[in-house]
Design a protein around this nucleic acid. Structure first.
Lengths: 274, 274
DNA sequence: GTCCAGCATGTAGGAAAATTACAGAAATAT
DNA sequence: ATATTTCTGTAATTTTCCTACATGCTGGAC
């Protein structure tokens, strides 16, 4: 959380930046403060603080305090080790796994402030669920489709731009359109989400907060994972997305009750025979 | 905090005791609830809940949620929490992520004793790399192929039995055949690995130790992840497999030297333009 | 140089949640 | 049996947060 604030500090306007600076300098105090207090202390106004919170994927200032206390009480033991060119294969491998663990910790800390309940409700009522993603995120989408399908829900995975845009154009109310992206910067994904949303579908973005895609979707599951810049593929963030979708599926299964659990058990038993 | 509540539970009156019991039974949900919600859920009233909080040295209900989240995010609570039917969606989601973190910890501990060096050597010299997997592991294979492909190596992913068996029959020395499976019990996968091995290919299994597939392959990357038996899909183990393949790719990139790193950078830059 | 569009910021009013005041019920002691 | 103390719930009060709208600023077009 604090990392994220520090990182995105530069993209903020002057007033919001004052808030960011104050929070970064007095994180523990900020966690215990009221909205009006923080606004006064940082020399800005209440709506500015709220907008500041929203920019980081929070629903409002109500989620700020819990989120901060969680971030502050998180064990800081797992410091990120960058992979060095002269690392032995085993050491490099260990560091990569460490980075993944780190990413999951980050996700864990954020889960509490995500609109999980709202998304689960939408999924439970969905006429169909459409997962979309390009490149590596396409694999995430395919995996998710394969996973939610076992709950007995109509699922599809779309992994190329034409299909995604075509679907968005024919989306209907009752559909849930879940778009996955590491960077959130592909224009066509944001456009597809916007279109589907206008047509009445429930759009969910699984991506970095503050990006076009994140803004275009109705619900945002923020997925910010600190990547090792020496590694040129978004690995840990993809892992975080998968873990989050796993979590979503389990939450959905619980919400759907016995019928869903029964379907899962049956689909598992079907494999056991093989 | 929770210990304190449990300890002082006996000294409370009936109504406040109902609150204490409810909080002890659903600590994570309690941390996220409103005053009115907690009062209703515990079968008491709002002032009773406030008095309950004051009894533990808190100024009021406003301090309750932060205290709880702090208590719950302590390292001790990371250890094993099974998902329960009456968990709130957010709590279930957190538990699933916890399970994934645990799986990665388990993998991390095992990495040191894996034949990473040997596998990396084989991959670096490979004429082509073939990833194979069925069902959920098929997605892992596809993802791996997509990832190693960026190193400039000839890669394929096979995700159905006929293709896998056909490939095994025409495998050649210089090929690396990497088979992924959660259970390791699909007979055709073990057979394919054996066949490919006989034909001189280097076979690598990414699966549970002690299974037919593990025995049939030349190298074994053990991937045993403790699954929550209440969850009927192998989620954390699949995550562990992905993390391990990520690690392998990075290790391989390092072993291949500047050329590989350059290819990764180029493939990343190609996306940036989009 | 002037005007307009778009964005960032702040003001004020309204909604929601937590807290307090008070009164009734239960339990115990006299 | 009654009085007193303790406990509990209803209703009003206050605090806190959020939203709608107005204002001022920056940057680009004509």
């Amino acid at each position: 959380m604090l990392d994220l604030i520090a990182q995105r500090r530069g993209t903020l306007g002057p007033a919001e930046r004052r808030v960011a600076d104050w929070v970064l300098e007095h994180p523990r105090r900020a966690a215990r403060m009221r909205l009006a207090e923080l606004a006064a202390a940082s020399g800005s106004s209440e709506p500015t603080v709220i907008r500041f919170c929203r920019r980081f994927g929070l629903r409002g200032f109500r989620d700020f305090a819990p989120r901060m206390t969680e971030a502050l009480s998180r064990p800081a033991t797992y410091v990120h080790h960058h992979v060095q060119p002269d690392d032995a294969p085993v050491d490099a491998a260990t560091k990569v796994v460490d980075a993944s663990i780190q990413a999951l910790f980050a996700i864990r800390a954020q889960v509490a402030s995500m609109p999980v309940q709202a998304v689960v409700d939408a999924l439970a009522r969905a006429r169909q669920i459409v997962f979309a993603g390009l490149g590596a995120s396409g694999h995430v989408a395919a995996d998710a489709s394969h996973k939610f399908f076992r709950l007995g829900l109509p699922c599809t995975a779309l992994t190329d731009s034409p299909s995604i845009l075509q679907y968005a154009a024919i989306a209907e109310p009752g559909d849930v359109f879940l778009v996955t992206s590491h960077s959130g910067r592909w224009a066509e994904l944001a456009r597809a989400a916007a279109t589907a949303g206008e047509r009445g579908a429930c759009t969910v973005a699984l991506t970095e907060p503050g990006t076009p895609l994140a803004d275009a979707a109705r619900f945002l599951l923020p997925c910010h994972a600190p990547e090792d810049t020496n590694v040129y593929t978004p690995m840990s963030s993809r892992l975080a997305q998968l873990a989050l979708l796993d979590a979503l599926q389990v939450a959905l299964a619980l919400a759907m009750g016995d019928a869903a659990v029964d379907r899962l058990r049956r689909s598992k038993d079907a494999l056991q025979r093989g």
